[in-house]
């Protein structure tokens, strides 16, 4: 049987030039993925899912496709909008199909190929499989994988797009997830003012205020918001008061280990100026509020990160007014307008 398939393939190849059909064919045109020199090593294994132009384009179509949801209206992009580094603008808790409200603030989609886990609690450990969560979650897209595939299969446009993107050309879950990953792997944000400054590009310089902010950041924040991804990718409890309405226990819910109580993924601070509101539940609307929280809002919720323990026994990070001002100036240098306006990732 396998021989037959191979033979058919040979036949198709041999006769393809003479064939005047309009059937789409596999187009393995590979695309370069950006690996910025100031980033740590990429985690995503592209050998298992080589990125092609057609695969990336299909992934983008799927990301903006309402059919991925039960009411055909909620696309991934509904909660992940480009102008806000692909977060759900103006929503502390994202809502999906039929107004269902989730319990967390949408995370930005950027540099995911460099991440070891996904979601605020790390509930996803492979980028390819992450989309299954929003797709099948009742309060997000409320669909089933097989139903999404049936909808896509019925669409001749998608039949062609899958045929161009994948060797076996099949409209199936494997290929849908691979295409979404290809799109997300390409979404690298690495051209902020800060990046150009550390890479000595375009003669970019920092103002005195920005430099002071960078120094304060390195002294007081970079243990957790580490590397040029601005996250050490660990799960930590930064002393936020518990919201009794949600009582979100963070990564505790996964292994039910009490050491994980109220721990959340240290978020990247790239494009942080546009990703408001802040924290896993979006409780702070401004960066000023975040810094005031670190300075004097943290509480002992039973499991706060020891790094935040101050000499007087309280938790937090003491910050003067000038330190706050300079930190905000520094955080502003992490905005990457090239990424936020990159047409490759834009819907239209």
């Amino acid at each position: 049987m396998r021989y037959i398939r191979e033979m058919l393939l040979v036949m198709v190849l041999v006769f393809s030039c003479s064939e005047s059909s309009d059937i789409a064919k596999y187009e393995p045109v590979s695309v370069e993925v950006e690996m910025p020199s100031n980033f740590p090593d990429m985690v995503y294994n592209m050998d298992n899912n080589p990125i092609t132009e057609a695969g990336f384009e299909l992934g983008k179509d799927l990301f903006y496709e309402g059919k991925l949801s039960s009411n055909n209206a909620i696309a991934c992009a509904f909660c992940h909008e480009q102008a806000f580094a692909f977060t759900h603008h103006g929503h502390n808790l994202s809502h999906g199909v039929d107004g269902g409200v989730g319990t967390r603030n949408a995370q930005p989609i950027q540099n995911l190929a460099y991440q070891t886990s996904f979601m605020w609690d790390g509930a996803a450990t492979h980028l390819d499989l992450q989309p299954i969560i929003p797709l099948t979650s009742e309060v997000e897209m409320n669909e089933t994988l097989s139903n999404v595939i049936s909808k896509l299969e019925a669409d001749t446009d998608y039949q062609d797009k899958f045929a161009r993107a994948f060797e076996d050309g099949e409209v199936n879950t494997e290929n849908m997830l691979k295409a979404l990953s290809q799109f997300m792997v390409m979404m690298v944000s690495s051209n902020s003012k800060y990046d150009k400054y550390v890479r000595n590009e375009d003669n970019v310089t920092f103002t005195a205020l920005e430099t002071d902010g960078l120094n304060t950041f390195n002294n007081k924040c970079a243990t957790c918001h580490a590397t040029d991804l601005f996250s050490d990718q660990s799960f930590r409890n930064n002393g936020l008061p518990i919201n009794p309405l949600l009582d979100d226990k963070g990564s505790y819910d996964i292994l039910e280990n009490t050491e994980d109580l109220y721990k959340f993924k240290v978020p990247s601070l790239r494009n942080v100026v546009v990703t408001y509101p802040y924290m896993h539940d979006g409780r702070f609307t401004t960066l000023e509020a975040v810094l005031d929280f670190y300075d004097n809002g943290a509480i002992d919720n039973g499991n706060v990160d020891p790094l935040l323990l101050r000499e007087d026994g309280s938790y937090g990070i003491t910050l003067s007014d000038y330190e706050k001002e300079s930190l905000i100036a520094f955080l502003n240098t992490l905005t990457d307008t090239e990424f936020l306006e990159d047409e490759r990732f834009a819907e239209f």
Binding site: N45, H126, D128, L129, T173, E174, K178, S181
Partner: peptide
């Protein structure tokens, strides 16, 4: 990840 999972997912 998704690679080689075909319809098992």
């Amino acid at each position: 990840g998704a690679d080689g999972q075909g319809d098992f997912l």
